[in-house]
Design a protein around this nucleic acid. Sequence first.
DNA 1: GTCCAGGGATTCA
DNA 2: TGAATCCATGGA
Length: 270
Amino acid sequence: MKPNHFNIDAPDFHLEATLESGQVFGFEKAPDGAYEGSVRGIPVRLRQNGALHVESPRAFPAETVADYFDLTRDLSGIYALIGAEPALRPALEKYRGLRLIRQDSWEALACFIISSNNNVKRIQGIWKNLAARFGGFPRPEQIARSHERILRELGLGYRAPFLLSTACFVAANPVCLETIREAPYAEAVRRVIAFPGIGPKVADCALLYGFHKLEAFPVDVWILRAVRKLYFRNRSVSEKRVQAFGQKKWGANAGYVQQYLFHAARMDAL
DNA sequence: GTCCAGGGATTCA
DNA sequence: TGAATCCATGGA
């Protein structure tokens, strides 16, 4: 993994927090500390020591990586938003530079169908099984040509038919991903939620990570607990109310605040 | 053995 | 609309 290697200047970037905050599942930390995975289908090895160091067996432009990690976005407004909350300042100090990745739309859609009632470790395992079986994370056509039994063998459990049905639809209607990307948030939610195995939470994850709709505010068990603790005196609150709360409070950047909240909650930093 | 995990679909009031 | 239940799987 070395023919092509280069550095990217990334002063306001936290590679570890970005890759370990549960937004992407195809990266693995090597014994030497480098993260191994793929960016837009290209195998990479990433390391951060000052600059972001990239290794790959293939030659490709540095802009691909910069775009993937959304490195040109100015985060100062988001930092102000998070810093305005005293309870969130520790999270900001620890994880400043955590960025939302511009993932492949299909991969995000598929991964978060797999994520339901599951944990990050297992989702990573299933991602690995799929990539090993199909030679890289499978495109919708590859899954459509596959079979529910295969997906179950790879560990998807009851989610296997959900992913299969969604893959069949996307393979038959490839334009639907573009339509979702171009639609405003509310309409995009309606379209994504129509797929089997996708409810409000998975829809928000897919739209946030795969379609870069930053107003999405996914509410999973961690976010539910954190928001209840910080803003509802630990009272019992529904996911629906917490979702509405987050979107109203943090508006167009709710998804970014959510990412810091989620990572800090899981790292026990709240 | 029980509980939990980046929930959703179904059923029933 | 809203609460209860089931769903595969593996780690704690």
